[in-house]
Design a protein around this nucleic acid. Sequence first.
DNA 1: TTGTTATTTCGCTAAATGACGAAATGAATT
DNA 2: AATTCATTTCGTCATTTAGCGAAATAACAA
Lengths: 117, 117
Amino acid sequence: MEDLKDITKVFKALADSSRVRIIKMLESKPLCVCEITFVLNLSTSTVSKHLSILRDCGLILDEKNGKWVNYMINPDLNSNLREQLINLVNTSLVNDNFIKLDKANLIMADRNLLCNI
Amino acid sequence: MEDLKDITKVFKALADSSRVRIIKMLESKPLCVCEITFVLNLSTSTVSKHLSILRDCGLILDEKNGKWVNYMINPDLNSNLREQLINLVNTSLVNDNFIKLDKANLIMADRNLLCNI
DNA sequence: TTGTTATTTCGCTAAATGACGAAATGAATT
DNA sequence: AATTCATTTCGTCATTTAGCGAAATAACAA
């Protein structure tokens, strides 16, 4: 059961364009911090903070994998609200130019290339 | 067609508990600023600002009526996103205690009583 | 163990936001 | 025209937030 505080927290998490861009990226596949950092062109610490905000409201999950941390859309969005919000974001912005560019850049964002230099 | 900026603006509008409470109140019926101010127990200017934020992202409408301004959920939410968000808020928080209390207080908030003293 | 690398946490700064009261605006009434 | 009253706008203040770089942490590699 969701209360006002929980719901506001989820809306706050989505009330930032960088975080919406992250959700849109994660719709393709799980990503590590450095891949997202490459696409958003922000500092690693800033991206890490954004991810923790999305995680703390239950929209995404992290999973350790060696020295990487993979982030993904929470496959078990234990509420109708979160599920519908993710669907809403998922079906939105399909023609937005920034989102298209992010998706194009994501193709070039191979963690091995990014990290082994 | 919605772009990233528009969508972020709508999420920002909902990322505040007072504004979510306003949306929940407007689900019952159109309300003037003084009725909402009575329930939220905030200053008139603050409530007016909240209402303008909700209006500027297209979620609500205002309608002059004599010296009052009636605010209501926009009956013509010209986008799937706004429509689904309003539905989402509408179906959420039905058991939240603060929202219940707001609805109870709203019954006592008659604009004639509030304004004719 | 020591080094390397990915991520997180910390401390800071600049900008945005929510709150208020006071002043301005707009519409009805006298 | 002057007054009254609901609402909006303005100026200010305190708090929150997004951003960064540096330091701390965690996990693999040598």
